[in-house]
């Protein structure tokens, strides 16, 4: 009769019900969210470049950025915080900003992002910002190419059905020469269309706010300079939130807003305690990164345990039983 091998720790780990792993992952996310700590957010160069580019338009009426929302609610966790952070940056530094989407499901997210960001600012649609609204995807290329000549002809009406050429925000903005930065927020290869059409044909600066899944695919475009900058996933959003807090919404000793220019030295020296930021909407990504840190450690531990277990049990199987 065959003897049953004694089950050691690794045997048990190999046969562990996957639902226990789900439970541990859930706990490793829930606990850091409830008991927050200050994990350090290092700002990477692609994020810095997006921030610097947008900030270079501060206070100018003849420069604007276009934010294209190309995602639905399934990737909101990663992309929404970066959209809010960029809108806050624009509202704070008086940078004209346009928004557009070509997916029906992106429309409510676009409206929600604008609503969330503008709560603390006295900004008006048509003057400080403008939502072009939802446009059918069939018009994506005609609009993308048409904006190279004349935005008001290509887009015609805004979110509220107003003719955009009569709006104050359009006074000094005609085409990509003025609206010189396009940021596409996507969980897909949507940014690629902006690179190959808008960038190649009109030389417009293109940046990407993308989910982490898409980041590796977009690095070649970043490395070749076809992307001005890139925010990758929740980490990119956390980095941008930090930059906005340190520079755009910086406060002086009296608590008044005193925006300042980007500086590597200031960035290096400044330490922001998350508990000092009262509004949770403005630190969503950074709180999330706390949980991300713990979850990653857990996953690394699982991978190590799984591999050690695999090799131990394999070695045992190969060894001849006396």
């Amino acid at each position: 009769m065959e003897k049953i091998k004694p089950r050691n720790f690794f045997d048990r780990m190999q046969a562990l019900d996957r639902r226990y792993i789900y439970l541990v992952v859930a706990l490793s996310i829930i606990l850091p969210l409830i008991i927050p700590f200050n994990s350090k957010t290092y700002v990477t160069e692609p994020t810095e470049n997006v921030y610097k580019k947008i900030d270079s338009y501060a206070g100018r009426k003849d420069r604007a950025i276009l934010m294209c929302f190309s995602h639905d609610a399934s990737t909101m966790a990663e992309l929404f915080p970066m959209e809010v952070a960029i809108l806050r940056h624009c509202f704070e530094r008086k940078i004209p900003v346009f928004t557009i989407c070509f997916m029906p499901a992106a429309k409510p997210l676009m409206d929600y992002a604008i609503m969330t960001a503008k709560e603390d600012y006295n900004v008006q649609s048509g003057i400080d910002y403008l939502s072009f609204g939802y446009k059918p995807y069939g018009l994506f290329l005609p609009i993308l190419l048409g904006m190279g000549d004349d935005i008001s002809e290509a887009v015609e009406t805004d979110d509220q059905g107003r003719k955009i050429d009569s709006l104050p925000i359009m006074k000094e903005i005609r085409n990509y020469n003025e609206m010189n930065l396009v940021i596409d927020f996507a969980a897909s290869a949507a940014v690629y269309s902006w690179i190959i059409y808008a960038r190649a044909k009109f030389g417009v600066n293109v940046a990407a706010g993308i989910t982490a899944v898409m980041a590796a695919d977009n690095y070649p475009y970043l490395q070749t300079g076809q992307l001005t900058g890139m925010l990758s996933g929740l980490k990119g959003a956390a980095e941008y939130e930090k930059l906005v807090d340190i520079f755009a919404t910086h406060r002086d000793e009296n608590g008044n807003i005193a925006s300042r220019e980007f500086s590597k030295e200031i960035l290096k020296e400044t330490w922001i305690k998350l508990s000092d930021i009262q509004d949770r909407r403005y630190k969503t990504a950074r709180i999330g990164m706390n949980a991300q840190t713990v979850a990653h450690v857990m996953i690394i531990v699982f991978i190590l345990l799984g591999n050690v277990g695999y090799f131990v049990t394999r070695k045992k199987d190969i060894e001849p039983t006396g």
Binding site: V25, A26, I29, I30, L33, S74, T75, M76, A77, E78, T211, A212, V213, G233, L234, K235, T284, I287, G288, A291, Q292, A295, H296, I299
Partner: peptide, 12 residues
Amino acid sequence: MARISLLIGRIQ
């Protein structure tokens, strides 16, 4: 990282 971020978003 992306999948964990989505889970974080929902748990948040």
